[in-house]
């Protein structure tokens, strides 16, 4: 499903002295089936932007197009957009409420008015996506660990099987293993359903690893968008708006500045390792020639 944003703007407390423009004239097309990252400083309008994408907030002006149809056209379209664009908020584990994990995951599909049989299938499917042990399905969600709760909450949205899945800081506050599990689940979901995934994050490392396209928000505006390489190549620009590139990219840029022949598109530790090995071999080769 194609998601397109057209001149979206959002103003809080419109006609009072507290008026604040949260999103200012943002237009973008999210590539179908991609993993798109949205990065930006706190208060740059990311959260407001994603809440307009599934119609929770109505824009002050502009349109959100799903396969060419404006979701704010009428009430029915708006309601159905919530199932087409799944939104997982930050710290979603605080929204669990049912007696058992299975019942909580079933909340979304039930609101979709699916049949009992279909709901049961969706529960198992969603649990598998996020790598949740099936034994946990009958437990109370409040007895689980933080990482497990987070995965239950994400499964609750995946169970609606939205063709577009948006997650606000899905891995914040988790340890590296927990982060892996979350992102692993997202990749599985994308690969098996062909869905588009949009991730809002502060972590440049996570973005470098998982995002294919990146949108950069700064002071309510969309200031940069493109493929991961195109965006991270502009390290100076990102730093100028208070953002950053991954640590390892800084290291590579510094080495390149000191005259080492390294490529400028390295954003992951694995990539850096490979590049450094190549460099080492080259230098070895040269030295061999000299001697």
């Amino acid at each position: 499903m194609k998601l397109e944003l057209k001149n979206l703007s959002y103003v809080y407390s419109g006609d009072t002295t507290f008026r604040r423009q949260a999103v200012d004239d943002v237009s973008a097309v999210i590539r179908e089936g991609s993993i798109t990252g949205i990065i930006g400083h706190t208060g740059s309008g990311k959260s407001t932007l994603v809440q307009m994408m599934n119609g929770l907030l109505s824009p002050t002006s502009g349109e959100v197009l799903l396969d060419g149809e404006n979701i704010f056209k009428d009430k029915k379209t708006l309601f159905s957009a919530r199932f087409k664009v799944g939104l997982v908020f930050q710290y979603p584990e605080y929204q669990l409420f049912e007696e058992t994990v299975a019942k909580d995951i079933a909340f979304g599909p039930k609101n979709q008015k699916l049949s009992q049989k279909e709901i049961a299938g969706r529960i198992l499917e969603a649990a598998d996506f996020v790598g949740l042990d099936r034994e946990l399905l009958d437990r109370s969600p409040f007895d689980l660990s933080g990482g497990q709760k987070r995965r239950v909450a994400i499964a609750g949205v995946m169970a609606m099987r939205p063709p577009i899945l948006i997650l606000d800081e899905p891995a914040s506050g988790l340890d590296p293993v927990g982060r892996e599990e979350i992102f692993g689940g997202l990749l599985r979901y994308r690969d098996q359903t062909g869905a588009t995934i949009i991730i809002v994050s502060h972590s440049m490392e996570d973005m470098a690893r998982y995002a294919e396209d990146i949108l950069v928000m700064s002071e309510s505006r969309l200031v940069l968008s493109g493929s991961r390489d195109e965006v991270f190549r502009k390290a100076d620009f990102l730093c100028s708006i208070g953002l950053d590139v991954p640590e390892v990219t800084h290291l590579m840029n510094e080495l390149r500045r000191r005259g080492y022949d390294l490529p400028d598109n390295i954003y992951t530790v694995e990539g850096a390792e490979a590049a450094l090995r190549r460099l080492k071999d080259q230098l070895h080769h040269k030295e061999g020639k000299v001697c």
């Binding site: 799944g86 605080y94 929204q95 609101n111």
Partner: peptide, 26 residues
């Protein structure tokens, strides 16, 4: 919380008084 449950399709605006009260549980 209201926003998050709405994102999962919770409906707080339609239905009888009873079903609306029940919708508050989440």
């Amino acid at each position: 919380i209201i926003a998050a449950q709405k994102a999962r399709g919770a409906d707080f605006e339609t239905g009888s008084v009873f079903s609306r009260a029940k919708a508050m549980i989440p």
